[in-house]
Design a protein around this nucleic acid. Structure first.
Lengths: 114, 114
DNA sequence: TCAATATGCAACAAAATAGTTGCATTTAAA
DNA sequence: TTTAAATGCAACTATTTTGTTGCATATTGA
């Protein structure tokens, strides 16, 4: 079919993984904490949470597996920082969807005005 | 602290539910099929899928629970159609995030240019 | 009315998730 | 060199998810 080069044209499968990674309140709040684009240690990210540090580590691994965060070992701590690419991709994906339904509405409008 | 009235200011918890609903390849493909904004029966939506109709029904229920689709019973069939509001909300949510990280980059830039 | 179509419902099983606890390892600091 | 801090790793449990099968119910059409 049509050829697209933008990152928004990734397979549905891939996008679903990113959606899934964001589909947990704990992980979404972790992403929110990382929005300052600065590296945060696991301990820092685990602060204030009700669940254990180990659980937080697992969530960070999930985010890392879909490329939403990257991990850098520095001294005795592991620093995580956000990678905006997958989020950008999702944004574009939703834009495409929005375009499609706007198109559907316009088609309907044209039809009704006929 | 700042007050926002847009639907993008919903709780993280709520957004996470929508992300989770989209975080499954089968469900995401169902949403794609519904993008024409027309009502589709369960059988129609199940066509071509490898999994059973009953499984599709469950996925549709998940989508319905987060408000992404609505169900209308017509005769002997159940018609599902897309509701774009939650998707719009997600889009705005991602836009806010994008704004935040752009801001972070600008702050960094200003700092470095100092 | 009878048969085919479209769903609904419920019980069940397998697999993935989310979280915990306990202990080992590595690094920084007193 | 001790101690405290930050993680890593593994085993284990509980819950949720995903999907199946079998059967019942409701509708449409010949």
């Amino acid at each position: 079919m049509s050829k697209r080069n933008s990152s928004a044209a990734l397979k549905t499968e891939q996008q679903a993984h990113v959606f899934a990674a964001l589909g947990d309140p704990t992980r979404l709040s972790l992403v929110a904490k990382l929005l300052d684009r600065k590296p945060h240690s696991i301990s820092t990210l685990a602060e204030g949470n009700k669940i254990t540090r180990q659980a937080i580590t697992k969530h960070l691994t999930v985010l890392e597996n879909v490329g939403l965060v990257s991990k850098i070992k520095e001294g005795r701590e592991s620093l995580y920082e956000l990678d905006p690419k997958p989020l950008k991709s999702l944004q574009e994906y939703l834009e495409i969807i929005a375009t499609q339904w706007d198109q559907a509405l316009n088609d309907l409008k044209s039809f009704l005005e006929d």
